[in-house]
């Protein structure tokens, strides 16, 4: 029995070594999440609720997850800016965070949502407000 368990352990250890030593280093480190939103955090209210729009779709149900490439970015923004609550697709809130995966898409995003930029904090993140009617 001991020999069987140790043989299984050797297989498991081999798999772990191969993945963590050989495969994982091929992929770049994910950057710290807070870096992207640090500047915006200083400009936004500390708590309460603001709007959140993106050039990528944010999944509202699990069925939409696979086709909604903006979901992770929203989750990261919410994590970074807590306890501020980000309301997805609310472009009529007094303050709206526009968060574009492609910075070049920001002008079109603001235009489409009828928002005007208050501060561009870089990396595709803009603090905005609705245009006056």
């Amino acid at each position: 029995m001991t020999a069987i368990i140790l043989a299984l352990a050797a297989v498991g250890l081999g798999r772990m070594a191969w993945f963590h030593l050989a495969v994982e280093p091929r992929f770049p480190h994910p950057p710290p999440i807070d870096d992207r939103y640090r500047a915006a955090r200083g400009l936004l209210p500390r708590s309460g609720t603001i709007g959140y729009v993106s050039d990528r779709r944010v999944a509202r149900t699990p069925a939409e997850y696979e086709t909604s490439t903006g979901t992770r970015r929203y989750i990261e923004a919410q994590y970074s800016l807590a306890p501020l609550i980000l309301r997805v697709e609310d472009d009529r809130a007094a303050v709206v965070l526009a968060d574009a995966a492609e910075p070049a898409a920001l002008p079109a995003l603001l235009e489409q949502r009828k928002l005007c930029a208050v501060a561009d904090t870089g990396r595709g993140v803009v603090v905005s407000r609705p245009r006056a009617p």
Binding site: V58, A59, R60, I85, R87
Partner: peptide, 8 residues
Amino acid sequence: SPEMEFWA
């Protein structure tokens, strides 16, 4: 808050 998406 239920105002956050259910992912939280």
